[in-house]
C-alpha cells in the first residue's frame, strides 16, 4: 500500500478529565505539525483570536496551519472533510465524547479510507478517577474507557501526593493485561510526543544511541541499523518490549522485503510496506524517563548490526 494514510489519534476520557485543556494545548502548540482536530463543541475550546486565520461554520483555521472542526454532523463526514483538504493534515486528532468508548471511536481511525490509527490516549483526573470508577451510573463506563487506552494520562497529578499516584498507577495496571502505558501529567501539560506521531520525524534526530532530548518524563533515542533487518527479529522485538516504551516509529529495510514503516504505541504495533524514498534505516524510541529497557534495546541493536557486518 503506497498511498499515505493520515495517522489518527483518539483522545478519550470522562467529563472533567482534561480533554479540552489538552486540545487547547495542541492547537496552540509548537509541535510543527498541521493538525486537524475534531471536537464535540467549539464553545469550550479556547482559541486565542490572534491565532485564528478564518472561521467558517464548522471549521476554524489557525495561522499555524492547524484546523479545528466541530463534530456537528457525523464523525465520518468530518473525517472526509479534513482528508479532502489540500494539503492533507499531518495528523487527525479526534476528541471522543465523555460517554464514548474510545476503542470504538478508534475503529474509525483503523478502518476509514485514508486513515491509519495512531494512538488511543485516555485521560483520567488523578483526583477523581477512583471515585468515578465506583459511581453507580458511570463506574462501568470509566473503567471501560481506561481499559481502551494505549496510553492512560493521569491529569492534575500536581494536586495529588506521589504515594497516591503510585497506588493509582498500580490499580490501573492491574485492571487487565491490555491496559496501556500510564503517564503522569501535571499542570495540564501533556508532552505532545505522547499524543502525536511526531517521534517519526526521523531525519531530525541525532546519531545512534544518542539521547536527543532529556525531559522530566520521557527520553527519545534513535537506533540505526547498518543493513536490512530480519522481519522475525523486528516482530519479536516490538512484541516483547514493555509498555515503558511509549512510542516507536521508523523506516526499516526488511531482508528481501524492502522498506517498511514501523509504528508502535504502547503495546500495539504495525509494520507496513512503504514507497518512501528516504534512506533512513532506523527506529526512534520514546521511553518513560529512566526506563532500564533502553540499554537492553541498545545492546540488542548492536548485536544485530554486528551479525550483519
Amino acid at each position: 500500500m503506497s498511498e499515505r494514510r493520515v495517522p489518527v489519534t483518539v483522545i478519550g476520557g470522562y467529563l472533567g478529565a482534561g480533554k479540552t485543556t489538552l486540545i487547547n494545548q495542541l492547537l496552540a502548540g509548537r509541535h510543527g505539525r498541521r493538525l486537524a482536530i475534531l471536537v464535540n463543541d467549539f464553545g469550550s475550546v479556547n482559541i486565542d483570536a490572534g491565532l485564528i486565520a478564518s472561521h467558517d461554520g464548522e471549521t476554524i483555521s489557525l495561522e499555524n496551519g492547524c484546523i479545528c472542526c466541530s463534530l456537528a454532523d457525523s464523525l465520518g463526514d468530518a473525517l472526509d472533510a479534513v482528508l479532502a483538504l489540500d494539503p492533507a493534515p499531518d495528523q487527525i486528532v479526534i476528541e471522543a465524547s465523555g460517554v464514548a468508548d474510545p476503542a470504538k471511536v478508534a475503529y474509525y481511525g483503523q478502518g476509514w479510507p485514508g486513515c491509519r490509527l495512531d494512538a488511543v490516549v485516555v485521560l483520567a483526573d488523578a483526583e477523581m478517577i477512583r471515585g468515578l470508577s465506583d459511581d453507580q451510573f458511570v463506574g462501568e463506563l470509566v473503567t471501560r474507557q481506561l481499559r481502551s487506552g494505549d496510553v492512560v494520562a493521569l491529569t492534575k497529578t500536581d494536586l495529588v501526593p506521589d504515594s497516591s499516584l503510585d497506588e493509582l498507577e498500580a490499580w490501573i495496571n492491574t485492571m487487565d493485561e491490555t491496559s496501556g502505558t500510564v503517564v503522569r501529567v501535571a499542570h495540564g501539560l501533556v508532552d505532545h510526543r505522547v499524543v502525536l506521531d511526531s517521534a517519526g520525524d526521523v531525519a531530525n534526530f541525532g546519531s545512534t544511541g544518542e539521547s536527543v532530548d532529556a525531559h522530566e518524563l520521557f527520553e527519545s533515542v534513535v537506533f540505526e541499523f547498518s543493513s536490512a533487518v530480519e522481519r522475525e527479529w523486528l516482530e519479536s522485538a516490538l512484541e516483547s518490549w514493555s509498555d515503558q516504551i511509549v512510542r516507536v516509529k521508523g523506516i526499516i529495510a526488511l531482508v528481501d522485503e524492502g522498506r517498511h514503516l514501523v509504528h508502535r504505541v504502547a503495546k500495539r504495533w504495525s509494520i507496513e510496506p512503504t514507497s518512501d524514498n528516504c534512506h533512513a534505516n532506523s527506529l526512534v524510541v520514546v521511553a518513560l524517563s529512566g526506563a532500564t529497557e533502553l540499554s537492553q534495546i541498545a545492546a540488542d541493536v548492536k548485536r544485530v548490526n554486528l551479525l550483519k557486518d
Partner: peptide, 8 residues
C-alpha cells in the same frame, strides 16, 4: 450505554 453523560 449512556446517550448523555450523567453529569451533563
Amino acid at each position: 450505554e449512556w446517550m448523555t453523560p450523567p453529569a451533563r
